[in-house]
């Protein structure tokens, strides 16, 4: 457990030192949300209708901005090789990287979502479900994204490839995440969506570290 925690701690200190990774996705979200009323008209009803989808898609796009960073920096400075060479299981190192990435980029997205909700006139009853669904959904972004990051870390311009690889895999997350918020905005129970979303989180928690570890090993060959 000790190497795990020290790896998380190392990533957190590095991430907190370079704050751009944390606030840039939020600024991006704010900018894009501003474009919606400008393009669509400021009618509260229209905005409320599209709010769940917009907030969820923005969370997806904002995390795509930082997903390549999960392994990229470590690949460039050579520390990825040290993860492979030590006796500590590589899949656990992946888990630590994903956790640190989520704490640095996913959690701020969850906490920032209500602001976007206010700007888009999201019905007040949906804020709890919005944050809960993002709390379950954004770690899945980081998990699935770690596969893409591990595959593209040795490429100079791997960003577009990462998007192409990760987006189709995240379609189900978007369906149930945005679906949960829509249901709650309509006054229905969102528990079914949230349960399915949790199922996906458990599945990616158990399977993805091995896939990412395999990708790292092939990439270092």
């Amino acid at each position: 457990m000790k190497p795990f925690l020290s790896l998380v701690k190392r990533d957190l200190t590095l991430g907190l030192r370079k704050k751009s990774q944390i606030y840039q996705p939020l600024v991006f979200q704010l900018l894009v949300v501003t474009m919606f009323p400008l393009g669509l008209g400021s009618g509260a009803k229209t905005l409320a209708l599209i709010a769940p989808a917009v907030i969820w898609i923005l969370a997806l796009l904002a995390s795509l901005l930082t997903l390549d960073q999960i392994f990229k920096n470590d690949y460039d400075d050579g520390s990825v090789e040290s993860y492979v060479l030590t006796s500590y299981p590589l899949s656990m190192a992946v888990m630590a990287k994903v956790l640190a990435h989520w704490l640095l980029t996913g959690l701020p997205l969850v906490l920032f979502a209500p602001v976007l909700g206010v700007l888009l006139h999201l019905p007040s009853s949906s804020y709890g479900v919005l944050m809960l669904s993002l709390l379950i959904g954004t770690p899945i972004f980081s998990f699935i994204g770690s596969i893409g990051s591990a595959l593209t870390m040795s490429l100079k311009h791997g960003g577009l490839l990462l998007t192409v690889l990760v987006m189709p895999l995240l379609a189900p997350v978007l369906i149930f995440g945005a679906g949960a918020v829509v249901e709650s905005a309509l006054g229905n129970s969102a528990s079914q969506h949230l349960l399915l979303l949790s199922g996906m989180l458990v599945l990616s928690f158990t399977l993805v570290p091995f896939a990412s570890a395999a990708a790292i090993k092939i990439n270092l060959e």
Binding site: I147, L151, L165, P168, L169, A171, P172, I175, F176, G179, L196, M200, L203, L207, A211, A214, A215, I218, N219, E221
Partner: peptide
């Protein structure tokens, strides 16, 4: 290396396909 990387993407896709299929159907 390219083929082995692509193979990994294919396997990840294979595992995801049923999930994608059923969620889209449900959606």
């Amino acid at each position: 290396k390219a083929a082995r990387m692509a193979a990994l993407v294919a396997v990840v896709g294979l595992v995801n396909l049923p999930i994608i299929h059923f969620s889209v159907k449900w959606w």
